[in-house]
């Protein structure tokens, strides 16, 4: 079988306190795929993203672009996967935005001109051209999210690994983020509770439960499986429920209608 862009085999990890965060995760992600990692709190979504770039010492095999994750390949693999953390205040650690965006390329050993060009291009691609001299603490929530994305885009990664990228965003900022990601990303993995965004941005969903893969398949099929969602402590996205209600008003109308009514 040819190498997938990302291949995980029996990946396991337990935190020092003994909590087993990953219990034998096996996955293959091809170039160009858009994958949503979904699951309840503590399912292991964030830990799996950390394991992908060797930030937690997981057992098992992780291969990225044909390279097996090891001390020798860490640098190269971190160039291939751009990991964006859940809290932008963790991601943006430099006093000025331009320095933050330049941090990755500079650590890659690129020359000053190339670093400056990549910084300008990454900021422009997320709609933050002219924000380079701004301090992260002066940015809005949406701007911080976009800036976080720029900090990895400047490294030109093959895969974007995004941890809860839309958490805390208002609808307009969320919409902008979706548009930016569509414009700049090719392959991405989204660890998220925002199932509407998962449905919108990903054609494949991997449901994690207690550190193991509970389901893996087309996002729409998984997210519309009410029994599976219920069992995993999630719920079918409203857009699917409303769609179902419109399609079969006689059978599903009263249920979807009553749920919508409760939300209103």
């Amino acid at each position: 079988m040819p190498d997938a862009l990302i291949a995980l085999e029996d990946v396991r990890f337990a935190y020092p306190g003994g909590e087993r965060a990953l219990r034998g995760v096996s996955l293959r992600i091809e170039a160009g795929e858009h994958v949503a990692l979904i699951g309840p709190n503590g399912a292991g979504k964030s830990t799996l993203l950390l394991a992908l770039v060797g930030l937690v010492p997981a057992e098992g095999t992780i291969r990225v672009g044909g390279l097996e994750l090891s001390r020798a390949t860490l640098r190269e693999i971190r160039r291939k996967i751009g990991l964006v953390f859940q809290d932008p205040d963790d991601q943006l650690f430099m006093p000025e935005l331009a320095e933050d965006v330049a941090f990755g390329p500079a650590q890659m050993g690129l020359d000053a001109e190339e670093v400056a060009a990549r910084t300008a291009s990454a900021l422009e691609s997320v709609g933050l051209a002219g924000f380079g001299r701004r301090s992260p603490h002066s940015l809005s929530g949406g701007e911080k999210r976009a800036a976080s994305l720029a900090t990895v885009l400047s490294m030109r990664p093959e895969v974007l690994a995004l941890d809860e990228p839309t958490a805390g965003l208002d609808p307009r900022s969320r919409r902008r983020f979706v548009e930016v990601l569509r414009r700049v990303g090719r392959t991405w993995i989204l660890a998220t509770h925002d199932l509407e965004t998962a449905l919108e941005l990903c054609e494949r969903a991997v449901l994690l439960e207690a550190g193991a893969v509970a389901a893996d398949g087309p996002a729409r099929a998984i997210l519309s499986d009410a029994a599976l969602m219920e069992k995993s402590g999630l719920e079918v996205p409203l857009s699917i429920r409303l769609g179902a209600a419109r399609a079969t008003p006689a059978t599903a109308g009263s249920r979807a209608g009553s749920e919508t009514g409760r939300q209103v």
Partner: peptide, 17 residues
Amino acid sequence: VTQAMTARGFDGSFAGA
């Protein structure tokens, strides 16, 4: 923050302009 820096290639030494 250390993890975020490490994920972007930080290995204990800063590559400054």
